[in-house]
Design a protein around this nucleic acid. Sequence first.
DNA 1: GTCAACCCCCCCTTTTGGGGGGATTGTTGA
DNA 2: TCAACAATCCCCCCAAAAGGGGGGGTTGAC
Lengths: 250, 250
Amino acid sequence: MQSFIDISRGLRNPADLEALLQSITKEMGFDHFALMQHVDLTPFEKELGHMVTGQLIGLSDYPENWINQYIDDNIVAYDPVLLASQRTNVGFAWSQLDQLIDLKRPHFEQLERGRQAGIGDGFTVPSNVPGEANGSCNFVVKAGRELPAKELMMAQLVGSYAFEAGRSIITHAKTNIVEKTQLSPRQIECIALVGRGKTDWEISRILGIAESTVKDYINDAKARYNVVKRVQMVIRAIYDGHLPLSELLR
Amino acid sequence: MQSFIDISRGLRNPADLEALLQSITKEMGFDHFALMQHVDLTPFEKELGHMVTGQLIGLSDYPENWINQYIDDNIVAYDPVLLASQRTNVGFAWSQLDQLIDLKRPHFEQLERGRQAGIGDGFTVPSNVPGEANGSCNFVVKAGRELPAKELMMAQLVGSYAFEAGRSIITHAKTNIVEKTQLSPRQIECIALVGRGKTDWEISRILGIAESTVKDYINDAKARYNVVKRVQMVIRAIYDGHLPLSELLR
DNA sequence: GTCAACCCCCCCTTTTGGGGGGATTGTTGA
DNA sequence: TCAACAATCCCCCCAAAAGGGGGGGTTGAC
């Protein structure tokens, strides 16, 4: 395991990472792997098959027809596995999907289509870095086979470090450190209240200040984020970690 | 390790998780741990010291005066460790902080203040779940001691699963599974565009339909979510998993 | 003495929220 | 097979809220 981490850290080439992942996937008793970011692919080039420097992470040894179907049908938009991977930070077996999300008919149909393409059960390690596309490293067995229960912990580690290796291959080529936008405490309070659907007047009553002041804070925050609408401002504040989504639902 | 995971999964009580973490922290050769979400606390209650059901994750056996200082000075807003933990998805030693973020003077000062309070080097496992506050599980040694290099992989696993255990204690305590509101595909498109800051008129041009129709979809979606403002609608749609946060930032 | 955070007021346009009224499809289940 | 229903569209009106300018001021930290 330690040697996998050390090797993966030194990689500078997607193909090397792919080969490394392929061998460790077999070693752990899985049949296929897929390391990917969950981006609705339609607006982009159809590049899931390999990694493009400075762009998206996407490596996999899934059967080719499944990869093509995945791209053509834009399955990334509703794959239950990927939805579930946005609900946790540790790996999960696909057989436990229903504990993470509410499985509806299209989800079952999707899993069934996978089985017909040879994709059976799987273990998915989520990889979510704020400000980047959500991603996951998926290890799967052929339909009919069982997951190698004893290797799941290993898969958890491999998945995390593999994804990080992918990120680092990309970001080494790119160097884009985005500074977290600074907001004043008062501004964060206003944004939180905006997120809860309050009007400026209501916020002014809650904070005990003038409506015009509330407008000032919000306008300044929008300017800092370089956006024009308060919806965008709230989204950005969530992404930045200034607000937890759960605070806004109360 | 496997037994830690199994036990942590069964926990329903913050105190039990705290005890479990405390013992495994020592076992791995660390001196302290801190499991927390990185929420700017000033606008909210000051509750870092323990876990509040349905609210934030926060457990730690740091020296008490350090916890207090942490809260009082709202260190969470600029702690370099927490900033760095939002730049990766795998654990990192604090001595490698400079590979993740640009360390400025206030950051060095913060690390120095930590050392004076007995907090030396550390290993931090990030835990970022989209839509929730960013979090981390931190394992630290007293100033002057070395990190237990051989246990870092273990710490990576323990950190991930411990955080997940914390999340599940909270979410299990919350009113359980909320039915995901059904939205039509066209509505989701509109909501996504609203989230990107488009006006109704712009959305109508993008989708090639009348502005009034866009209004209809949005009004209907707000009604389904039982909210009045479009900000709330977008937030709810994100929480539901109808939209990934990353889609809205493009 | 500069700067950021905090606070307040004005004006005007555009966008939104919240009603009302229609129509056409395709699916679904009694 | 036919009624019910959900999804897709379109139009009207009006009041409230947000967006985008401008102009002030105090305080405390560096």
